[in-house]
Amino acid sequence: MEQIRKLGFPIAMVYGLVVRLRNYLYDIGIFKANTFETPTVCVGNLSVGGTGKTPMVEFLVSNLKETNKIAVLSRGYGRKSKGWVLAEPNTSVEELGDEPFQIFSKFPQITVAVDADRSHGIRILEDTVSPDLILLDDAFQHRRVIASFSILLTAYGSLYPDDQYLPVGNLRDHKNEARRADVIVVTKCPANLETMQQTKIKNRLKPNKNQLVLFSTLVYDPMVKGLEGQFPLTALKDKKVVLVTGIANPGPLLYFLAEAGIAVEHLPYGDHHFFTASEIELFNTKDLVLTTEKDYSRLQGRVGKLYFLGIKHQFLSDGKAVLLNSISTFTKPGR
Results as ranks from 00 to 15, higher is better:
151 I>S: 09
19 V>D: 02
88 E>N: 12
35 T>S: 09
225 K>T: 15
160 Y>P: 00
204 R>C: 04
208 N>S: 07
141 Q>A: 05
156 Y>E: 13
274 F>S: 05
234 T>E: 02
256 F>V: 08
136 L>N: 12
162 D>G: 05
293 E>P: 06
13 M>Q: 15
78 G>H: 04
140 F>K: 11
231 F>C: 03
24 Y>A: 10
42 C>R: 03
120 H>K: 15
108 P>L: 12
21 L>T: 13
177 E>Y: 03
103 I>S: 00
130 S>N: 14
322 V>C: 01
81 S>Y: 04
274 F>P: 00
176 N>L: 13
144 R>D: 11
202 K>M: 15
244 V>G: 11
118 R>M: 02
128 T>M: 10
277 A>S: 12
159 L>T: 11
282 L>G: 02
220 Y>N: 14
77 Y>E: 01
281 E>M: 05
192 N>P: 08
59 F>E: 01
229 G>W: 14
28 I>R: 13
103 I>K: 01
222 P>C: 07
306 L>V: 09
321 A>N: 15
164 Q>I: 03
275 F>Q: 06
153 L>V: 07
195 T>E: 15
159 L>A: 02
220 Y>I: 07
33 A>V: 03
184 I>P: 09
170 N>Q: 14
332 K>E: 13
66 E>G: 14
82 K>V: 06
201 I>V: 12
54 T>M: 12
157 G>E: 04
216 S>Q: 10
215 F>S: 03
287 D>Y: 12
37 E>Q: 12
156 Y>W: 15
246 G>I: 09
10 P>M: 05
214 L>A: 08
189 C>Q: 02
74 S>D: 02
137 D>G: 08
249 N>G: 01
147 A>R: 15
218 L>H: 15
72 V>L: 03
332 K>A: 15
105 S>N: 15
169 G>V: 05
87 A>S: 08
174 H>C: 07
53 K>V: 04
77 Y>S: 07
